[in-house]
Design a protein around this nucleic acid. Sequence first.
DNA 1: CGCCAGGTTTAGTCTAGTCTAAGTATTCAT
DNA 2: ATGAATACTTAGACTAGACTAAACCTGGCG
Lengths: 226, 226
Amino acid sequence: MPKLSRSKQDYLKALYALGPEGEAVVTSRLALRLAVSPPSVTHMLGQLAAQRLVTHAPRAGARLTAKGRREAVEMVRRHRILETFLVRVLGFDWSEVHDDAEILEHHISDRVLEAIDRLMGHPAEDPHGHPIPDRRGRVRRRDLEPLSSLRRGARATVREIRDADGPRMARWKQTGLVPGAQVRVREVRALDDVFEIEVGGKRVVTGSEGLEGLMVESAKGGPRGQ
Amino acid sequence: MPKLSRSKQDYLKALYALGPEGEAVVTSRLALRLAVSPPSVTHMLGQLAAQRLVTHAPRAGARLTAKGRREAVEMVRRHRILETFLVRVLGFDWSEVHDDAEILEHHISDRVLEAIDRLMGHPAEDPHGHPIPDRRGRVRRRDLEPLSSLRRGARATVREIRDADGPRMARWKQTGLVPGAQVRVREVRALDDVFEIEVGGKRVVTGSEGLEGLMVESAKGGPRGQ
DNA sequence: CGCCAGGTTTAGTCTAGTCTAAGTATTCAT
DNA sequence: ATGAATACTTAGACTAGACTAAACCTGGCG
C-alpha cells in the first residue's frame, strides 16, 4: 500500500468534511473547497476510486469508502493534535494555528505525532472544541447546532468553533465567544438580520453572518429557564 | 522571490556540506550524496544558477554564492533546532532524530521554528554537539579533528557526532562516546587497524572505521601540541 | 601524438497534479 | 417537449523533478 500523496490526503479530508458518513459529494463542491478546477477533481476522483478510497459514479458525485474514511479521520486526528500542540505547548493563539497544522499534518511521522500526543496527556479536544479522534479512528459525536439557529431567549453553551479564518476567530475570542462560554439570545430580528446575544453578562450585537461556524449545545429545560 | 522547493533546499544543503566556503563541488559527488542521477544534478544546477544561488561552469563543478550559502545555513539552523526539540522536548534519543528533522525542516514555518527555539531558550548546540547558526546565519566555528587522527597517548574531548546512521550512533552513546566525553588514546596500531581508547575509565577497542565521524577537541598541553 | 575511459552534458521520456477548452449530460422553464 | 442554463467529463497541454540513453569533452597512458 503506497502512502498517499499530500494532494490525495487533502481530497479525502475535504470529502470527509462535506460528507462524513459517506454521503455523496458533487464535483463542484469539492473543487470549490479545494480551490481547484472541476476537471482536476474528476481526474483525482478517478485515481482515488482506483485505490478503493472512494466510489465515484459519473455525475452522481463521490463518496468515501470505509477505507477512505479511515484515512480521512486519521488526517483529522493529526490536524487536531497539532493545533492543540501549537496552542498548549508553543503558546500560539487558537485563532492562528490552522494553517501551520494544515501543512504539518501531512509531514509529521507517526512517532512524532504520538510523542506530541503523549506529551500533552492525550487531549480529548482541540483548542476549537473539536473532539480528537482516538488512535483507532473513533470520534466522539455530539449533538450541536449553529448558534445562529437559536431562538430568542434560548440559552446554550458554545462547544465548537468551525472556521479557519483567523481574524474572525480572534474577534470571537475577544468578545468571549470561546468553547465553554454560556450564551443567551436576547433578540433575533430576521428582517434586518440582527442577532443580539449575551455572553458572560456582556451584550453583543451582530448579523447572523458574523456567527457562521459557532456551534452550541442547547441548555436543557428550554428557552424560559431561570 | 519564490520560496525554494524542497528539492532545491536539499541541493543547497548538500552543496554546503561538501563545500561550506564556496569550494567547487563536482556533479558526481552531488549525485552520489543526493542519491540522484548525474543528469538530474546538471539540470538542477542550471536552475539554481539561474536563481543566482550557485555558479556553475560546465565540467568545473558548482559553488554556492553568498545568497545560496545563506539559504543553506538557514536549512542547517532549522535542522539542528528541530533535532534539539525532538530530543529535549519530545524525549527521543539523539541517535534517532535525524530523519524526522530532515523532513520537518522543509515544512515548518518560521514562526513555529522560532517558537520552538524560544521554548528551548535558544540553544547553542544540537544534541550531536553541532553549533546552531543564529538567526542572522552566523555559525560559531570550532577547530575540531577526527578522533581517529589522534596519536597514542593523546587526550581530547568529544565535541561532535557527524553521522546520520542511527544504530551506529546508538552504539557510541552506549559506550559513552557522547558530546562532552573525555577520551584518551591508549593504543594505535595502523597495521591491523586497531584503535584502543579510554572513555570515562572504560577501555574501548575498535577499528578506525568504527570511529568515522566522531570529532574531538584536543586537550591543551597534550602530546599533540601546536 | 593519438586514443580510450571516465565523468559530464544533452536529449528525450515519465509521473503526479494541475490547468483550459471543448464536448456531453441533466435539469428546469417555458 | 424542447431549448437554455448548468454541471460534469473528456481531451490535451503544462510544470517540476526525476530517469535512461547517447553524445561529448578531457586527461592519462601507451
